[in-house]
Amino acid sequence: MNETMITQQVNQYKSDILMQTRQSTLLNYTGTPIIDEERLFFTLLPLLNGEDWDESERISVIAISLIFSALAAHDLVKEQNATSREQQLQVLAGDYYSGKYYQLLAKDKKIDLIRQLSECVASITEHKTRFYDQQNYTFEQLMGSVQLIESKPIEQFMEYYSFHDYVFFMKEALLLASLKKEIAAYERMEATFYIDKSSVLKSNVNLLQAEIKKIENSLIQDVRSSELLKEHVKHAIVERVTKCSLETQLREG
């Protein structure tokens, strides 16, 4: 499998997810749901690496992507004055995608997976509120929260289908991707999701950058030395992991 085939797989899943979320009013006002292709790629790691994969795995991946689309829709609701029609429908878009994920798994009779994923969603909301309450969290605690928010349902999916060995790569890569996006937005003085909400992160941007470098180096090393991952998958992971840094370097000239 080469990069083109990987892209085709990811795109196929993306279009399957979009099929599930087709709703004319939502499309008119909120557009298509947010589907993070990086996240989708890392969710599909076992498939791309040649693991056995059937219809249930396919349905579960779509359901998990819908969970993230639902959460992302709600993250787009403004803290104050969400009174425009677009904002009102953003609230409902998130609820609609949630309902769709439940329905997909209910039809596939995956009641135990629904339970596990619901626990993940509850946990994600708890960790998201860490960026809104006035408690003091350490840098490490916040890193743990970011990682959980970015990857917990995928971890659960991989554990459920016994793809345990992929969890580490997926979690580290998604944490890294998210932190890189945060730093890039922060440097461009754009709104960030985590840094703006946490004085600990804001006052430790240097530490955050060092953490990014550390995770990136260690992840690349682990990927290259992995006996589990096939060469084309290793190449695809490293390419994605380093992409963001290259973009930054190019921008900085």
Binding site: V121, A122, Y132
Partner: peptide, 27 residues
Amino acid sequence: WNNRVAMYTGDFLFAKAMEYITEVKNT
């Protein structure tokens, strides 16, 4: 609080509802 906290509260309650209902095994 604010809209975002309300969104998370609602999402939390939906998730808890689904946790509970999965005790029912009738698909």
